[in-house]
Design a protein around this nucleic acid. Structure first.
Lengths: 230, 230
DNA sequence: GCTCGCCATGTGGTCTGGCCAATACGACGA
DNA sequence: TCGTCGTATTGGCCAGACCACATGGCGAGC
């Protein structure tokens, strides 16, 4: 079949199809929670073969737009499903990594809250200031970002959790930085991250463990959207 | 064709293939910058069809592991370390290990609950029965215990979390088993563990994510007391 | 001898059509 | 009324084929 591939586009078909489906979802044609047409029907509707449609669905599955349930159907997920109930999503590495961080560091924030001390809050505040300074100076604030997360992990007093948090952080950075390091004007992204850090700090200072967990998961979910999605 | 799907995995084939290729790359079989075999050859080598191999390559392309050049080939990206496999560290006490498991697997149970399927519940039930059988037969039920926790971790669809759960479990067992495996009155302990597993299963079957999390954390806390404290 | 353009070959891109396995749901019987 | 079983529907996977694009070698032309 093939679709109207005008001029010199080199994009692959599955990318076009994935974009098309995203557009349909955004346009409200397939609201969240609903099931979209069967693969065979949807492929016909979009004028592509089922394999190409499947490749597009896998891409959508990886970025969390859609959930595929074997034998049941393909379901639209909430774009930014929020709440203490962590979002479900599957897929491969970057998304999985960030989802794992959401799960682990949420619990870590909960534990750390029980051991908050003035010195600890002080340290977090210092790290936050340093991070803002780095952003202002146009320097990569990754080191301060890492220090923030590690400080909280270490405050749990559990070296196993510290190790996991460190490992997940480093893994993410090593995988994503190569792709995105060229676009260094992400100043706004870093500012947003710093503000979310501040929210975590406020919750910890208030000794509100649930709020701390929520703030941390929110921060990491937003981070995932910033770094992975667009 | 199909591949040797051992214990009854429910993950999709493309995910397994993608992991396999990642492993080959990590193992140095396909160094960065090099081209990996043609799709047709690689599919044959991995014992899958070309469409499935293509789905895996798309996943790898999305997460930045690989670059696909039309008409040329598939190339390995990213010379830097891929996935520092959170291996052990020293100075970690068994108590810390179990606390980390409480935090991580509690969150994992929460996530898994959103993806409960009849087949999954069935599998968990089978594992539970096998565990009871092993206890009755006087055999070490560790394998069934591990299978139970891994099944839940894998149900999240997140291979990063699966990896963490697996490594924490193995680490615990390797440290503790030597000391305690001799004592044979552990039968009561294992029976208690099996009952706690059943409680987790019930919560999952009821799709009650908070109850599942609570049951899992309770199980691991009681496990810690059984194996470490007394 | 050097350069340029053509084309054979290999590679990914896509399609058709099929069968299998898991799920969902309604009809049926206890 | 409730559980059980069959069947329609759905996704999962495969085999083979053809097309479009990149590449590199080879020969014609300079």
């Amino acid at each position: 079949m093939g679709r109207a591939r005008d001029g010199g586009e080199v994009r692959r078909l599955y990318q076009d199809v994935a974009d098309e489906i995203r557009a349909l979802i955004r346009a409200g044609q397939f609201p969240p929670q609903t099931r979209l047409p069967a693969e065979r029907d949807l492929a016909q509707q979009l004028n592509v073969s089922r394999p190409s449609l499947r490749e597009a669905l896998i891409a959508l599955e990886i970025d969390g737009t859609v959930e595929i349930r074997m034998g049941s159907g393909v379901y639209v997920l909430e774009p930014t499903d929020r709440g203490p109930t962590l979002t479900r999503a599957l897929g491969e590495s970057p998304t999985e990594l960030m989802q794992a961080r959401v799960a682990v560091e949420g619990a870590v924030a909960l534990l750390a809250c029980a051991r908050v001390s003035p010195a600890f809050l002080d340290r977090l505040g210092t790290v936050g200031t340093a991070m803002l300074g780095a952003v202002e100076a146009g320097v990569d604030p990754m080191a301060q970002d890492r220090a923030f997360h590690m400080a909280i992990a270490e405050q749990t007093g559990n070296s196993v959790l510290s190790r996991i948090v460190a490992s997940l952080f480093d893994e993410r950075y090593s995988r994503i930085s190569a792709r995105l390091s060229s676009r260094y004007e992400d100043r706004r992204s870093w500012m947003a991250a710093a503000e979310e850090h501040a929210a975590v700090l406020r919750a910890l200072a208030a000794r509100d463990s649930l709020a701390a967990q929520a703030a941390m998961t929110r921060h990491l979910q937003l981070s995932a959207e910033r770094w992975i999605d667009p």
